[in-house]
């Protein structure tokens, strides 16, 4: 299963992002939180008064932008890494059981899906965050719990067709219990589908987290998050463009990487869905 050229690009971007996040303390040239009033809003490729070099310049508090972006990768990927498994477990459980048992229970799950699709996510998330207070844990739980829908819908569809296949009907004929059929026969057959869904949810969660942070109710300062950095950079856009441009490039690149990787996995693992 060799990656296509665009698959390679996605893979490389994601590996670089993960490495940057993991090795942030080693590779970041400065402490992302240390402020230097004398070196506020230095343009890219400039030196501060002490002769320190800032590749991407500094922000409104004199913090090194490159270091903040590297640490921002940590926040972004950590939220995704924690939220995605929650969505995966909830969505797969509901999707498999709904598709297998069908009937009234299936209807209930489908209505829940409809309702979540109908409701404005960002607004609902903001209302919950302002009521109970934004924290790392609340954001992860919020994104994790609400992210189940893609898994639920697609896994259910897959199970609806799997359950009519011969290996399932024969397992049922020899008297296998429902739990065993689901665990031994249905779940393993959704594995490649789940890989695709996970790879596509990671960039999605990153966008949502950065949007919440941009609106001030996500990751709280001084922790560097790309969305929060963009929101701070907004007011300097006319003259100090770099404060708002670089975090956005970082975010777009990583999201693009995730999407490329997801597209390639979909083409490689699920030929039926090719280039949809």
């Amino acid at each position: 299963m060799r990656p296509t050229p665009s698959g390679w690009v996605g893979l490389i971007i994601m590996v670089v992002a993960v490495l940057a996040a993991a090795l942030a303390p080693v590779i970041a040239p400065y402490d992302p939180l240390v402020q230097d009033v004398a070196a506020r809003l230095r343009p890219p490729l400039s030196l501060d008064s002490r002769g320190g070099f800032h590749l991407l310049g500094t922000d409104q508090l004199g913090r090194d932008l490159l270091s903040r972006i590297i640490y921002g990768a940590r926040v972004s990927l950590l939220v995704a890494a924690a939220a995605v498994p929650i969505s995966l477990v909830i969505g797969t459980t509901l999707g498999v059981t709904a598709g297998y048992f069908r009937g009234f229970y299936d209807n209930v799950v489908m209505r829940l899906l409809d309702v979540q699709l109908a409701m404005p996510f960002i607004l609902l998330a903001l209302a919950i965050l302002v009521a109970i207070g934004p924290s790392f844990t609340t954001i992860i739980l919020l994104l994790g719990i609400t992210g189940w829908t893609h898994y639920g819908r697609i896994v259910r569809g897959e199970v609806l067709s799997l359950r009519e296949r011969e290996f399932v009907t024969s397992a049922r004929a020899v008297g296998a219990a429902s739990g065993r059929i689901i665990w031994r026969h249905l779940l393993p057959n959704t594995a490649s589908l789940l890989t695709i869904l996970v790879s596509l949810q990671v960039p999605h969660v990153m966008i949502l987290e950065s949007a919440l942070s941009f609106l001030g109710l996500g990751i709280q300062p001084p922790l560097p998050s790309w969305g929060g950095m963009l929101s701070e950079g907004r007011q300097y856009m006319l003259l100090q463009w770099w404060v708002a441009v670089f975090p956005g490039i970082a975010l777009s690149l990583v999201v693009l990487g995730g999407n490329l990787l997801g597209d390639w996995l979909r083409d490689a693992l699920d030929p039926r869905q090719r280039s949809r």
Binding site: A211, R234, M237, W241, A244, G248, S252, L256, N259
Partner: peptide, 26 residues
């Protein structure tokens, strides 16, 4: 066309908005 579509899907809405403001507005 598909690269364009992929980029359109990847660039976060608010950053794109900020960039449009910066370029065409400011």
């Amino acid at each position: 066309a598909m690269t364009l579509a992929l980029i359109g899907q990847s660039v976060p809405v608010y950053w794109q908005g900020l960039m449009l403001i910066m370029i065409f507005g400011l």
